[in-house]
Amino acid sequence: MGYAIETNKISKKYDSFTAVDSIDLKVPRNSIYGVLGPNGAGKTTLISMLCTILRPTGGSAMVNGYDIEKQAKQVRASIGIVFQSRALDDILTGREHLEMHAALYGVPKDIRQERLDEVLDLIALGKKADEYVKTYSGGMKRRLEIGRGLIHHPKVLFLDEPTLGLDPQTRESIWDYIYDLNQNHDITVLLTTHYMEEADKLCDEVAIINQGHIITSESPKNLKRDLKADTLTITVDSPEEFVEKVKTLGFIKEAFLVDGEVKLMVEMGENLIPAVVGFASEQGFPIRSIELEHPNLEDVFIKFTGSKISSEGK
C-alpha cells in the first residue's frame, strides 16, 4: 500500500454551495504533499474531512489505510494535526499542552516523559515551556502546535496553512523544521497553503485546487517545466491593443492580461527583451516597465485558473 492518503470522489456540499467537489487525491507515503489554492478553495474543508471533523457528503477516503468514516477513531489516533487557526489554551503552559495531548492520544505513561523532552527539545521553547501560552510569540505558538501534533508519533501530519501570518524568518525556520521531520522520521506530511514559495520549497508534489476542484497535481518542478516559459510582465498605456499586436510575434507563446498588465510567455526571456521593446516602440506603445520572471508556481496557478492565487476574496 503505497499511499498514506487516498480519496475517492470525496465531496462536501452545504445547502447551496459545494466546498469540495469529487476530489481524488493520492498522497504517497513519506512525501510532503501540498494542497495549493486561494482562500475559499476548499482546502480546509478537505483537511477537516480527512481529520474526521467533518463528514463527507459524498465519496470516501482512506488515511493510513483506515476509512475516515467507519474507522474515525483509528484515523484520529494515527494522525497529527496543526489547524489553520490557533488551537491553544491561553491559561495552560506549553508543557501542559504537550502532557495533555500525550494523555489524550494514549502515549504510554513510561515513555511519556521521554517524548515530552524529545519534542520540547525539537521546538526549542526553552524556559518558556513552563509559562502560560498567552505570553508566547506567534512563532512559538506555532512551534508548540507542530510539536504537539508530533508527540504521539503520527504517521500522517496535517498542516493547515502552517506559516500563515508568521514573519519571513519564522516561516523559514518552520520550513526547515518540517523538511527535517520528513527526512528523519517515517512521516507523511500533507500541508495546505496559499503561499507559492512554501509549496515550491517544501513539497514533493502539489495539487492545485480551486473552487472545490483539483485542477492539476504534479511535482512543482514538472509543473514549472510544463510552462516551458519565462514571463515578461509589461506595463503599457493601452494594454488591450498591445496584447493583440504582440501576439503576432513568432516567439510569443502566449499573451494575456492580468490586472491591466501584459504577460508574455516566452522561452529564454532575457534574450528577447530588446526585441519586445523594439517591437513595442515601432508599433507606438511606449513601454513603461518590463520585468522578467522565471516560472514559479504562481504562474502555474495563473495558467490554470486565470487569476492570481493571493487575490483575497476574489
Binding site: 471533523i53 477513531k73 489516533a77 489547524f83 489524550l104 494514549g106 504537539r148
Partner: peptide, 14 residues
C-alpha cells in the same frame, strides 16, 4: 471560538 475545542474533538477518545 479560541480554537481549543478542535484539539479535543480530534483526539482519539469518544
Amino acid at each position: 471560538q479560541y480554537g481549543f475545542l478542535k484539539e479535543i474533538l480530534v483526539a482519539p477518545i469518544s
